[in-house]
């Protein structure tokens, strides 16, 4: 049985994920996602557990101020920057 996952769902996922399926790959992506999601359906047999399936967190470090990263070193990997700030496309008209 194939999962009812259609073009509109794929479009919505692309919005949520902030990425597009390159031209010509849409049909195959749909087929693959349908198969994978249909396989994941077997999880429906699992009863909801009271117990959380998360991994435990260890001891937290002391909440003490410490030197932060060097700003210039951190920004070295940005493609476009100006006056110590990242350059982004215009957000307000």
């Amino acid at each position: 049985m194939e999962f009812e996952f259609g073009r509109e769902d794929l479009k919505r996922l692309q919005e949520l994920s902030r990425l597009d399926i390159p031209e010509g790959e849409e049909e195959q992506t749909l087929t693959e996602l349908r198969r994978i999601l249909a396989f994941m359906e077997r999880l429906s047999a699992v009863k909801d557990a009271d117990e959380e399936g998360s991994m435990p967190v260890g001891a937290l470090r002391a909440d003490e101020p410490a030197p932060a990263f060097d700003r210039e070193a951190l920004m070295r990997n940005a493609k476009r920057k100006k006056d110590g700030a990242y350059l982004a496309p215009q957000t307000v008209e």
């Binding site: 996922l13 692309q14 994920s17 996602l33 999601l37 994941m40 999880l43 429906s44 959380e52």
Partner: peptide
């Protein structure tokens, strides 16, 4: 894409919560 799907409204309980 798969991750966005299993975390999205309407599918979170059926996939992500069940997986946990």
């Amino acid at each position: 894409l798969l991750g966005s799907f299993v975390l999205s409204a309407g599918y979170y309980d059926a996939y992500y919560k069940k997986a946990k």
